[in-house]
Amino acid sequence: MQWTINGQVREAEVDFRTSLLDLLREQFQLSGTKKGCNQGACGACTVLVDGERINACLALAVQYQGREITTVEGLAERGTLHPVQAAFIEHDGFQCGYCTPGQLCSAVGMAGEFERGLPSAVTQDLAAADLEWSRDELRERMSGNLCRCGAYNGIADAIAASLGKEVVR
């Protein structure tokens, strides 16, 4: 079986039961992606597949063969932190750091969704072609990533800053 992970083609033969999350963590030692609940309830395992955020814990690795997978280890480019990574440090968007990789990948995925014009549950006019950023849009869209330390304000500040958005509070 073969996957492209952070731009590198990786191969392994794994049990059909192996999740994409365990493939990353146990086969490829990419332990930046975290296991928080293993049932799609916390978002700690969020990775990007072809640019879209998913929960790697509910994804069977075998189903994702041939796909482009980006993990937290692949966000920085040539040693330079991705803007959202730098913003998390500056705005204290974490405490223990365990949900952080998922938050970061989720934020990157979310930015893409917004750019593509996808609405959220709090988008007032679903038919509108143009979306407007707001603090509520950001908060709703990031609600699939739990943080038990309670760094939510810092996370929202960091994401808003990294997107260069003036987000109304």
């Binding site: 799609g40 978002g43 969020t46 998913i54 929960n55 989720s106 038919a127 609600s143 699939g144």
Partner: peptide, 21 residues
């Protein structure tokens, strides 16, 4: 535009990650 309740219902469920899967 034509069936907004369907969009809203889906967006009210689960998380963005799960809706992508």
């Amino acid at each position: 535009s034509r069936y907004p309740l369907l969009s809203r219902a889906i967006l009210s469920g689960a998380s963005a990650q799960i809706r992508n899967m």
